[in-house]
Structure formats: C-alpha cells, structure tokens
Amino acid sequence: MSATAENAVETSPRRRTSLRKMIGSRPVSVAIYLAVMWVIVATALKGAEAMGYNWQWYRIPRYFYEATEGGIVLGEIPWGLVGTLALSGTAFLLAVAIGLIVALLRLSDLIVGRWVARGFLELVRNTPLLVLLYVFYYVFGPIFGLNRYTASVGCLAVFHGALISEIFRAGINAVPRGQWEAANSIGMTGWQIYRYIVLPQSIRFMLPPMTGEVVNMIKSSAIVSVIAVAELTTVGRNIISDTYMSFEIWFTIAAVYMVVTLIISTGATVLERRYAVRD
C-alpha cells in the first residue's frame, strides 16, 4: 500500500467523525431544531386557519399573572407548575431511595434479594405507566388508603425507581474491582465500602443519566392529570374546559414544560463539568 492510500484510509473516518461532531454541535442542533419546529408550527397554523380557528392569544397572559390593586397575583399556570415540581420532586426523592435499595439488593449475595429485585424490575418495566397509575389509584388506593396525590407519588416513584436502580447498578459496576479489594483488605464492611469508596466514585458515571431521569420524571408526571391531581397538565385541561382555547393552552403548557426541562439540563451540564475536573 502506498503512503497516500494509507493516508486516505486514515482520514476518511476522521472526516466522518468531524461531520458527526459538527451535526452534534450546539449551534447546528439548535438550527435543526428551529427548522423542524418552524415546519410543524407553520403547518399547524395553516391547518388552523383552514378550519377557521379563532386565535385568542391575548387571553393567555392572565393565566400566568394578573395585576390587581393588591399587586401582582400568580395565575393558574404558575401554580400548576409548582404542583408539578412538588409532585416530581417528592416522587424523585422516593424513586432514588427505591432505586438504591433495588440496586443494592440486585448486587448483593442474597439470592432472595436478587430475586425480589429482579422480579420488581421486570414487573414495573413491562407495565405501561398509565396502567401502573390505575393500579395505584383504583387498587392500592382503597386497600392502603391512598388518596389521589399519594397514589400518584407512589406510582411515579415506583416507575422511575425501577429505571433509577439500573442507573445505580451500572454506576456501581463501573467502579473497578480493585477498589473493592483494596477496601476489603483494610477490613471495611460492605456498607462502609459502598458509602465511602464505591458510591462517591460512581456519582460521576450516574450524574448524566440521573438528570435525564429528572427530566423524564417531570414529563411523565403529566399523566396524573387523568386522575385530576392538581398539576400543570390538569390546569391546562381545566382552563380548556372553561374556554375552549385548546390550541393556545396546549402550546403554552408544552412551552412551560420545555423551558423547565431545558433549565434543568443546562444546570446539569454545569454540574457535570464541575465533577469532571477532579481526575
């Protein structure tokens, strides 16, 4: 093989990765995103026009805030958002606890523990979220005395706990075996090894998928609107049933979700960068 041919073989994959890098870069992905959104919005507007939809955007701001004599009063949408964040936050904390326990059971040498964890995981992963919510509300509700809110929190925590347990498991397994051996050889207990050696090291591996789960949690919390728990999507449904402004309200609600999840993703990137320094 001649020197130039070798060169060509070497550069072509490099060029391909640089193309991929360019497409993956922030400005380019934002541009693609905007283009796609533009097509969708334009089509929607045209369709709405064709069916003679009466746009009433001017009526939207009052659902965010209203100026009264007493000052500015928050409208239904911010309160719905507070509901969504409180619900997702509570459920997420619970989900992390469930995920950690399930992951530790799965990695333990207790055969029963591994079986329980495995069974839980398969059961939850193979049940649609909506069905799980119905089970929590209509079945566990009367049995364990759960109200709408606790049933929703429980359902979301269990569903995402299963996913989070896999994140924990992967993160824990990413810590090399030598770390266990070194910790064991100075006589640490299993619990101490997790607490002081393994978990602190696996945080770095778990942070990116974990923030992904926060975002997923916020998005899937919308499903509890089917049992009328007070949160953002429920607020949207309520406003529409009063005003019939379904286009404006759903666009607005979607935008609010998007702003919140984008803020979280950006914050997560900053956090990851800070954790990555220490190598």
């Binding site: 090399p176 030598g178 770390q179 051996e181 070194a182 050696i197 090291q201």
Partner: peptide, 8 residues
C-alpha cells in the same frame, strides 16, 4: 496490589 488500587 500490582495495580496499587488507591482510592482516586
């Protein structure tokens, strides 16, 4: 150990 296995 051969690979040191210090806690990084």
């Amino acid at each position: 150990f051969q690979q040191f296995n210090l806690f990084p």
